[in-house]
């Protein structure tokens, strides 16, 4: 079952994509997009995992020889989370604007002229 963590990432991505495709509300769509992005966190952390190793924090009493999981993917995940949050904030601001101009946030009801 060593493939399971990777399959979780694939599942999160696909289930988020399903939400985006079938969405009837733009706020729901933005949240689905952030679910898709969560797949990348799971994938990054799963790749950097080393069996039996702990977090890469070597406080007093933890010898470096013990080893740890990969710190680089963890740093990348941090960047990933920040970028996701900023993206969601901008998209939600756009949704507010769309609501003001078109009076609807159902993607199926939006028409070009209303925007």
């Amino acid at each position: 079952m060593t493939l399971l963590p990777y399959l979780l990432a694939a599942w999160l991505f696909l289930v988020g994509l399903y939400g985006v495709v079938t969405s009837r509300h733009l706020v729901h769509l933005v949240i689905c997009l952030s679910v898709m992005q969560s797949a990348t966190y799971v994938l990054l952390l799963a790749i950097g995992y080393r069996s039996g190793k702990k977090a890469p924090i070597f406080t007093a009493g933890v010898p470096v020889k013990v080893g740890a999981v990969d710190p680089v993917v963890q740093a990348l995940t941090l960047t990933d989370v920040v970028v996701s949050v900023t993206g969601v904030a901008l998209l939600l601001a756009l949704v507010v604007e769309i609501w003001k101009r078109a009076g609807t946030v159902d993607p199926d009801r939006l028409r070009r002229k209303e925007l």
């Binding site: 060593t2 493939l3 963590p5 790749i47 950097g48 070597f58 080893g67 990969d70 680089v72 993917v73």
Partner: peptide, 22 residues
């Protein structure tokens, strides 16, 4: 799924960069 089967097995990542930094 096809791509994931080609990744390093879960828990067995050997990326040098991370080892060196630790």
């Amino acid at each position: 799924v096809w791509g994931f089967t080609g990744l390093p097995a879960f828990g067995d990542f050997q990326g040098e960069y991370g080892w060196i930094l630790n």
